[in-house]
């Protein structure tokens, strides 16, 4: 049973890291703010979710697991709001100089 969990952790964390990597590449390569926002919020949040799921079995008590999920939810909330605000500022300021 523990090998299965270990395998699960390695896979999930690996996928998470891949999505982070994708988000970063998007950040660097995309032409303007809006598309970069798109890359960041989507890829990174998904990556974080996968990492959290991957780590769930390794965590000692269910309370700590719950805290990990809370962390994920808060990051989701924060990044969603932040990206919307930045998007509004970017749109109102017109095409990036």
């Amino acid at each position: 049973m523990s090998q299965l969990l270990d395998l699960w952790t390695v896979l999930a964390v690996g996928a998470g890291v891949f999505f982070f990597f994708a988000g970063t590449v998007g950040l660097l390569r995309f032409p303007d703010t809006l598309t970069r926002l798109h890359a960041l919020t989507k890829a990174d949040n998904l990556g974080l979710g996968l990492v959290v799921l991957g780590l769930l079995p390794r965590v000692g008590s269910p309370l700590a697991g719950l805290k990990l999920i809370c962390v994920w939810l808060l990051v989701l909330l924060a990044s969603a709001t932040a990206s919307q605000l930045i998007a509004r500022v970017a749109r109102r300021a017109g095409p990036p100089a």
């Binding site: 808060l74 909330l77 924060a78 969603a80 709001t81 919307q84 605000l85 509004r88």
Partner: peptide, 13 residues
């Protein structure tokens, strides 16, 4: 707006 929504949701937490 979005900020007001966050400002209502986050403080209790």
């Amino acid at each position: 707006g979005m900020l007001a929504y966050l400002a209502r949701l986050l403080p209790p937490i």
